[in-house]
Design a protein around this nucleic acid. Sequence first.
RNA 1: CGGGGAGUAGCGCAGUCUGGUAGCGCAUCUGCUUUGGGAGCAGAAUGUCGCAGGUUCAAAUCCUGUCUCCCCGACCA
Length: 584
Amino acid sequence: MRASQLHLPTLREPPKDAETISHQFLVRGGYIRRVAAGIYSFLPLGVRSMEKVKRVVREEMDRAGAQEVFLPAIVPAELWIESGRWQKYGPELLRLKDRKQAEYCVGPTHEEVVVDLVRKDVRSYKQLPINLYQIQTKFRDEIRPRAGLMRGREFVMKDAYSFDATVEGAHKSYKGMYAAYNKIFTRLGLRFRPVEADTGNIGGSMSHEFQVLADSGEDAIVACSACDFAANVEKAPLQPSDWADTPDDLDLPHAVETPGAKSIEQVCKLLACKPEQMIKAVLYMADEAPAVAFVRGDREVNEIKVKKALGCQALFLAEADWFVKATGLPPGYLGPILPDDFEPSRVRLIADAEIAGMATAVCGANVKQQHLVDVSPSRDLAHLTFADLRMAVAGDACPTCGGALQAFRGIEVGHVFYLGQRYSKAMNATFLDEQGQEQVFEMGCYGIGVTRILSAAIEQNHDARGIRWPVALAPYEAVVLAMGQDAVITELAAQLAEELRQAGVDTVLDDRDERPGVKFNDADLIGYPLQIVVGKKAAEAVVELKVRHSGEKLELPAAGLAGQVAKAMVLGRAGQTLTADLLR
RNA sequence: CGGGGAGUAGCGCAGUCUGGUAGCGCAUCUGCUUUGGGAGCAGAAUGUCGCAGGUUCAAAUCCUGUCUCCCCGACCA
């Protein structure tokens, strides 16, 4: 391909609505253009990179025994009503009506459609297992789309659904997908980690996220330094602490004046203590009823764990006014020791297990402007319900081996779920087993964020000048930069580009009548893994190579170069990072 | 939905306080020169100043309403 013929509008300056690195480079590099909030057009380069993701995904899905289908983007409401999600899903579901006023939605995920498809045609255990996947444009009317392709409203996703006769079969399907996902992300050249995950509102009981490791990632994950354990911090269970003994000479809890000190920080300053010696109260509205979660002063509450511990459906941070009306307790001075005359059923109290391990603690006194000191949890807080409520952090003990956890940031690009019968049961999807008995399908679902992968890859692979694509994701694997319009140069450059093309390397010939600086800068920005510069030594048939990822440069004769590059690209397409060594 | 910010040429921005011919850089087009890290000179084209009302002799600028976008938070297979 000739750059002079390519629609490749690069921008020198980032558009002001792009703050994230990947968003900026995707727009500046001429990959995407914004159409509306969270909705993008893909330009030729963007399409090429996206197609490369799809190809790898298809190959590995097919290899794993899944079959591609293509389901409708627009789904009739009746299917969603049947699964119960028409009510539950909320405003994120884009609903619309046709001319007859019949209701539809734009599918944000396709469990309903695929269950409907399978229940109609699959009647026997002999037809199982079956795994169907599609690559579709999805729409989720996100409250706040952001960061370009990272969290768009419209996005492309690969979603697969497995149907099995038994739980064991479903687990096998799940493992098959888990293995396929490892292959896919490895081939795409990404540094990633599968982690245990919360199942969210899609339901199910077993779930892993595939996280691309990047400092800018939205998700916090922890991984054990000693064993294989890795989990989203939302999910990571923590080991309970042993009860700490009450120090012998400790007074009974007594109140001290702490005027105006509502935050942990202010109390610490006033009483000269540390956040880890305090008990923090976080106020919630749990299914319309007040509840308080206590964690150590330096910890974050994990609301998913709180939700589970309380067994509630909806959990929101409580508005202070509402909470006061409901309980009469003073926000800012709330503590786990309630006044004797307080009716305990008016508020649910739960405490993080770690609090049990505190020797002494400072907490709110449930009286304005006062805190209690010399609180010994083992002596004074035995009435509380203790549970694992906090976010895991680096240094916590691994729940499986006790080793130290490390913290990472990640971008979720894949998610595998064991669903069980949640959808198949709701939608009465059954088959006949060997005994002729009607059985409900065991399901799993498996997603990959195709467009998000592009953003994630850039977040992980870039420098100040631009993108450093893994070979497998680059729109073109190599660019031949012709330095000037001299005939010796243009002819050698054209010849090299043709040889590379014939050797199977996706190549662009930058034949534009631009100054060298423009070509170098565009090449760095766009992120071709390999730049081949035809210039000063063209007369001797020697060219210069620059490996974008490592920045390595080397000079090589043009003769035989194409074959060598082709060999290196084969390794690159398998997920290996391109280096100068592979080219020599 | 809460808090903050912004809508002026394709992109990035100034001008708004203090009303008076709509500007700058980059990009684009033409010509000449230039050609190893975003060239120089000369010329050209490009705008419902987000939208709708209002005040005024006169509105990008003041007033009212409204829409959109961005950031933080809540939310999220």
